[in-house]
């Protein structure tokens, strides 16, 4: 938390200077980011490197994940080549500062859309809906969400320690017993050892774990507390925003659907049905 305050303080100073030294930070807006990126021949994307399946270093040392694939889709739209991306590694706290100070063209880093954030940056259309899910060990006495609900106060749910952890779990399982752990991997370990019947965890992480170890874990099939993940850009460049929106929309519902579907299958283990053909919507 302290770190975040520091970021805010530094950013406040930065933007103060930006308003006094006008012209510097608006140089890009005048010519347009889309043209700048096309002239440069490479897209500069801010993202993280420690959160599978979104952005992480695989065993061969390569940066991979769903966010990386989304960046590739935008690069393909720009240059016809998904590899023309230069990634700038950033902590989650640096997502907005790096955009505001023109270090990157776009951020794709499992960024939750909040109205407050939308006052500082421009969000694209969402490319994933995150939520909280329940992961169960395969062969456990509770097979799915309905079983856990029926078990009432006998069900033990592991979750990452947090002020609202109890509320999170009780929103889905009102009577369940909540076991809090200081790290999310320990919550998963509690499921492994049978100490907990299920763990409440990010839906995307559950999908990833189930896809990695289909013989070990099951997804309860219920998700709640929705939130949208979008890429974000610097405010004030509608042409650039429209372009990225179009690329993302056509990846999910149009000509690039196959690439999006392949990525989705790879990182979440789920085969998406093709969008409804006929009247769009």
């Amino acid at each position: 938390m302290r770190k975040r305050h520091l970021f805010k303080a530094v950013l406040a100073v930065a933007s103060l200077i930006a308003t006094t030294v006008t012209g510097v930070s608006h140089a890009n807006a005048a010519s347009g980011t889309l043209q700048t990126v096309l002239d440069r021949g490479v897209l500069i994307v801010g993202t993280g490197s420690g959160n599978p399946p979104w952005h992480f270093i695989d065993k061969s040392g390569k940066l991979v994940g769903m966010d990386i694939d989304v960046a590739g889709m935008i690069a393909k739209g720009l240059f016809g080549d998904a590899s023309k991306v230069q990634f700038v590694q950033q902590a989650s706290d640096a997502r907005i500062p790096n955009l505001v100070t023109d270090k990157i063209d776009i951020t794709c880093q499992f960024m939750t859309v909040h109205a407050v954030r939308a006052q500082q940056v421009a969000f694209t259309i969402p490319y994933y809906r995150e939520g909280v899910g329940l992961i169960i060990k395969k062969g456990s006495k509770y097979k799915n969400y309905a079983d856990l609900l029926k078990a009432g106060n006998k069900a033990k749910i592991a979750i990452l320690q947090n002020v609202q952890s109890n509320d999170y779990v009780h929103a889905a399982l009102p009577k369940a017993k909540v076991l809090q752990y200081p790290e999310s991997n320990l919550a998963i370990a509690a499921v492994d050892s049978g100490r907990a019947d299920a763990a409440a965890y990010d839906q995307s992480s559950i999908s990833w774990l189930v896809a990695q170890s289909p013989n070990k874990y099951v997804d309860s099939g219920y998700g709640w507390m929705p939130q949208s993940y979008s890429c974000a850009l610097k405010q004030g460049d509608q042409v650039w925003l429209n372009f990225v929106n179009q690329v993302l929309h056509e990846a999910m519902y149009g000509v690039e659907f196959d690439a999006y579907k392949a990525s989705f299958k790879k990182w979440f283990g789920v085969t998406l049905p093709p969008p409804h053909i006929g009247f769009p919507g």
Partner: peptide
């Protein structure tokens, strides 16, 4: 300097732990 994205020892460790949870 890991905080601004320089991949030194600390950030490498975070990357490795992100993948295998062996914190």
């Amino acid at each position: 300097v890991s905080i601004i994205g320089v991949v030194e020892i600390t950030l490498v460790m975070q990357q490795i732990i992100g993948r295998n949870f062996l914190s």
